[in-house]
Design a protein around this nucleic acid. Structure first.
Length: 660
DNA sequence: TACAAGTAAGTTTTT
DNA sequence: CTTACTTGTA
C-alpha cells in the first residue's frame, strides 16, 4: 500500500495552550516535543519522568494527533490512569480515546477485538498464576505423575519453570539445566507434563499470562492484516518502565512500531527489578541498536528528594556492576540526613516505626504521605499487629490479595464457566466443592459434559452412578446453572446468586471462619457492582486485580487519603512519599536469602535503590539485630551488605532504648 | 471411591 | 500458613 503524507497546515500547530518551554527543563522539553521517530529517555529516579510523558501526550494532541492514535504501555493500569488524569488536568480539552494499560491487558483487548480475523472463538479465559498451577496439576494427574516418589516437583515449581522458559526465551530443558539442575533426572516427565499443559490450554480456550504475550507477538508477525490494522490505529507508541520489559515484550514493541517508527521508550536501568520474571535491563541499552536513528535523552535532575537522601542512594547504586552512568543531582535545597536505626529485635523495630509514625502525624504530616517499605510481604506482619494496636489505619500493597483466597476463587470459578463453558479448570474446581464428589467423579462428569450440545444445566442428568449426597448436590448445582443468565443479569446479580448457592458449601468446608470469608465475598459483590459486562469483570480480575491485600478491614471507615501505606518495594515503584521507612534492611531479608547469586544480588541492589529513592524529605532505614528463626531460634542479624557501600557519615545514627 | 485426620515439607518479588 | 501425600474408615 502506498502512503501519501498530508502536510500540516502552517500556523495551526504553532500556537500551543501550554507553555512547554517554561514548564519543563531543557531535557524534559526535548523529550516532550520530539514527536517523530524513535526516542529513548533515560530518566533517573524522581527526574520528572511522568511529568514529561504527560506533557508529551498533551503536545501530541495539541499538534492535531487524535488521542485514539496514542498507545501508552505502562507497568500498571494505575500508572496509565494517573498519567491520563494529569494530562487531562493540563489540557482541559478531552483526551478521551488514549489507549493505556499493561502489555497483558493490551494483548487481551486486541486479541479479543480481532479474534475473528484469525478464526478464534470469541471467548477465552485468562488463567492467573494459581489457575495455571491448577491446570498444570490436572495435566500432571492425568499423566499419572502424582503417584511418584517425592522427588517430582510440585505444581508451583512446574508452572514456574514453564513460565520462565517463555519469558527468558529458553526451552524448558534449558531452564531446568540452568536453574533446577537437581531435577535433571526428571526432564523427560517434566517435558511430557509441559506438552500436556500446552495441549490442555489449546483444547479449552485457556490463555495464561505468557500466552497473552506470545499470541500477540505471533499474530503480529504472522498475520499481516492484523499488524497493519494495529499500525494504522496506534501511530504513536510510548512505553514506560522499559527496563522492566523482557525480550518478548521488546519484540512486541518493535512489531507495533514497525509501520511508523514512532516509539518512545522511557526507563531507568538502575531501577530494573523484574529480572526474576525475565525482564532484561539490557533491553534499554540495546534500544538504539534496534531502532536506528534513536535520539537518546537523559534526565538527571532530581525534583523529588533532598540532597542528603540522594547522597545515600547515589552511593548505593554507584557500587552496581553495570549501568548507564548518571549521577542524580537534587534541585532541592536543605534536608536532613537519612536515619539508620539498629533495633534489638523485630518487635523493637515495629514499635519504633509505629511510634515515629504517630509523632509525624502529630507534627501534621498526613498518613497518606508516609510509607513503610519492605522486601517481602511477610516482613510487615509484626508491624501490622503493632499498627492495629495503635489504631493507625493502613493499606497494604503487594503480597497476597483477597482475590487469591480460596473462597473468592471458588465464586469466580462459577462465573467463569458462564463465560467459557469449556473452562474445565473452573468446572473441576466447582465440582470438587460438592459433597460426595471427588476427582474421579468430577472427571467422569466433565467427560460426559464435554459431548457437544450439552448445556450447563444438563449436569443434573448425569447418568453415572453417584451416591445420594453427590446426586443431591449435583442437582442443586444444575439448578443454579439453569438460573444464571449472563445475558439478562448484571454481573453483580450473578455474583449474588452464586454466593447464595455457595454459602452452605462454605460453611461445610470452613466451619471455623465462615463468617469472615463471607464478608470477603460480600466485598467482592460490591466490587462487581462496578461492571456491566461479565467478560470485562473476569478479565480485570485476572489482569488488574484490586491491589489491596487481605484483611485491611481496618481501613473501611478511614478516608482513602488518610491511610498509611505498607508496601513491597516492587509495588512501590513509581510512587513517592514525604517520609519513607525501609524495614528489615538486614542481610538475608534485604537482599533476600533466595537471591544470593551474583546477578540476583545486583537486582537486589537496584531494589534497595528503588526503595530509598521513593523518599522526598525523610528516609529511615532500620534492621533488627536479633532474628527469630523457626529452626535455629534467635540468631544475630547483619545489616544489609548494601549499607557497606555507604559512608557512615551520610547517616544520622540512632540508638533505641526502652523507657524506664 | 470419598473423605477425615495426620504428617511432612515448602514458602520472594508480579502480570 | 498452605498444600502434598499417606493412612484408615465408611
Amino acid at each position: 500500500m502506498a502512503t501519501y503524507t498530508l502536510k500540516r497546515s502552517p500556523g495551526v500547530a504553532e500556537r500551543f495552550r501550554i507553555d512547554y518551554r517554561g514548564e519543563l527543563n531543557d531535557a524534559q522539553y526535548q523529550a516532550a516535543t520530539t514527536l517523530q521517530g524513535p526516542v529513548l529517555v533515560v530518566a533517573g529516579a524522581g527526574s520528572g519522568k511522568t511529568r514529561t510523558l504527560v506533557y508529551r501526550v498533551a503536545r501530541l494532541v495539541e499538534t492535531g494527533v487524535s488521542p485514539r492514535a496514542i498507545l501508552l504501555l505502562t507497568f500498571t493500569r494505575r500508572a496509565a490512569q494517573e498519567m491520563l488524569r494529569r494530562a487531562e488536568g493540563l489540557l482541559e480539552g478531552t483526551l478521551e480515546g488514549v489507549t493505556g494499560g499493561t502489555f497483558h491487558s493490551f494483548a487481551n483487548t486486541v486479541l479479543r477485538r480481532y479474534a475473528k480475523l484469525f478464526g478464534w472463538p470469541e471467548q477465552f479465559t485468562i488463567l492467573d498464576r494459581s489457575d495455571s498451577e491448577d491446570t498444570v496439576q490436572l495435566a500432571r494427574v492425568r499423566l499419572g505423575l502424582d503417584k511418584k516418589e517425592r522427588r517430582f516437583p510440585r505444581k508451583q515449581a512446574l508452572a514456574a519453570m514453564f513460565s520462565t522458559a517463555v519469558n527468558k526465551a529458553l526451552t524448558v530443558t534449558e531452564v531446568i539445566e540452568r536453574e533446577y539442575p537437581h531435577l535433571a533426572t526428571e526432564i523427560e516427565d517434566i517435558l511430557r507434563c509441559y506438552a500436556a499443559y500446552v495441549e490442555y490450554k489449546q483444547e479449552r480456550n485457556l490463555l495464561d499470562y505468557d500466552d497473552l504475550l506470545t499470541q500477540l507477538r505471533d499474530r503480529l508477525s504472522g498475520e499481516p492484516e492484523f499488524a497493519n490494522r494495529l499500525g494504522q490505529v496506534f501511530r504513536y507508541l510510548m512505553v514506560d518502565e522499559y527496563q522492566d520489559t523482557n525480550s518478548l515484550q521488546a519484540d512486541i514493541v518493535a512489531l507495533l512500531a514497525r509501520p511508523h517508527g514512532n516509539v518512545m521508550a522511557v526507563g531507568d536501568d538502575a531501577q530494573s527489578i523484574y529480572g526474576f520474571r525475565g525482564a532484561n535491563f539490557k533491553n534499554i541499552m540495546t534500544f538504539p541498536d534496534r531502532f536506528p536513528g534513536t535520539q537518546v535523552i537523559t534526565l538527571e535532575e532530581n525534583y523529588r528528594s533532598t540532597q542528603p537522601i540522594l547522597d545515600v542512594t547515589n552511593a548505593i547504586i554507584a557500587a552496581a556492576a553495570e549501568r548507564y552512568s548518571k549521577t542524580l543531582r537534587s534541585r532541592r535545597a536543605g534536608g536532613v540526613r537519612p536515619v539508620l536505626v539498629p533495633a534489638p529485635d523485630e518487635n523493637f523495630q515495629s514499635r519504633f516505626v509505629c511510634q515515629r509514625i504517630l509523632e509525624l502525624a502529630e507534627e501534621g504530616i498526613p498518613l497518606a504521605e508516609i510509607a513503610v517499605l519492605f522486601r517481602s510481604s511477610f516482613h510487615s506482619f509484626d508491624l501490622e499487629l503493632e499498627l492495629v494496636r495503635a489504631g493507625v489505619p493502613f493499606v497494604k500493597r503487594g503480597g497476597f490479595k483477597f482475590l487469591e483466597t480460596t473462597h473468592v476463587k471458588d465464586v469466580l470459578a462459577h462465573l467463569r464457566v458462564l463465560a467459557n463453558p469449556r473452562d474445565a479448570v473452573s468446572w473441576h474446581r466447582i465440582l470438587l466443592l460438592l459433597e460426595g464428589i471427588g476427582p474421579r467423579a468430577a472427571e467422569a462428569i466433565l467427560e460426559w459434559m464435554s459431548e457437544p450440545g450439552r448445556p450447563r444445566a444438563a449436569l443434573g442428568e448425569f447418568p453415572g452412578a453417584l451416591r445420594g449426597a453427590a446426586l443431591i448436590s449435583l442437582r442443586r448445582l444444575a439448578g443454579l446453572m439453569a438460573t444464571l443468565d449472563p445475558e439478562e443479569r448484571r454481573p453483580a446479580e450473578l455474583v449474588g446468586q452464586v454466593i447464595e448457592h455457595y454459602q452452605p458449601i462454605l460453611e461445610r468446608l470452613h466451619r471455623e471462619d465462615a463468617p469472615k470469608r463471607l464478608r470477603d465475598l460480600e466485598q467482592f459483590a460490591v466490587l462487581a457492582e462496578r461492571y456491566r459486562s461479565l467478560g470485562r469483570l473476569l478479565a480485570d480480575m485476572a489482569l488488574e486485580p484490586p491491589s489491596d491485600s487481605v484483611g485491611d478491614v481496618l481501613a473501611v471507615d478511614a478516608r482513602e487519603d488518610e491511610l498509611l501505606t505498607l508496601s513491597t518495594v516492587h509495588s512501590a515503584k513509581g510512587l513517592e512519599w514525604h517520609t519513607v521507612f525501609v524495614i528489615w534492611v538486614a542481610d538475608g531479608r534485604f537482599p533476600s536469602l533466595y537471591s544470593l547469586d551474583e546477578e540476583e544480588i545486583e537486582e537486589e541492589r537496584r531494589l534497595m535503590y528503588v526503595a530509598c529513592t521513593r523518599a522526598k524529605e525523610n528516609l529511615v532505614l532500620s534492621y533488627p539485630l536479633a532474628v527469630h528463626d523457626r529452626v535455629l531460634g534467635f540468631t544475630m542479624a547483619r545489616p544489609s551488605r548494601f549499607l557497606d557501600d555507604v559512608p557512615s557519615q551520610l547517616f544520622e545514627p540512632v540508638t533505641l532504648v526502652e523507657a524506664e
